[in-house]
Amino acid sequence: MPNFRANIQVSLRPSVLDPAGEATKSAAIKLGIRGLTKLRIGKSIDIEIEASTKEEAKGQVELLSDRLLANPVIEDWTLELFSDDLSIDV
C-alpha cells in the first residue's frame, strides 16, 4: 500500500491571545532582534500513513487534524501531504 507523509501545522486562531508567543517575543527583543512585530507559537506534527489513494490519506489526516490534533474552538490547522511514490501526484 502506498505510504504518505503529512505535516500538520496547528496555530492559535488570530483572535486568541498567545501568552507564550508574547513572552518569547519580549525575550527576542531583549536579545536585540530588531523589527520584530509578530511572534506566535504553534505546533508542527509529522505523520506517516498508509492508504490506497491520496484521497483516502487526505480524508484520514483531515479527520485526525480536525478531531484530535487541533481544537477548532481556539485553533486553526493547515495540512501538507506528500507521497514517497513519485508516480502518485499529491
Binding site: 498567545d18 501568552p19 507564550a20 513572552a23 474552538v73 481556539i74
Partner: peptide, 16 residues
C-alpha cells in the same frame, strides 16, 4: 469542553 458537553475552551493563563 474538549468532549463538547460544555462550550468553549480553557487556554494558557494570560501571564503564563
Amino acid at each position: 469542553t474538549e468532549l463538547g458537553l460544555l462550550p468553549g475552551a480553557l487556554t494558557r493563563n494570560q501571564k503564563l
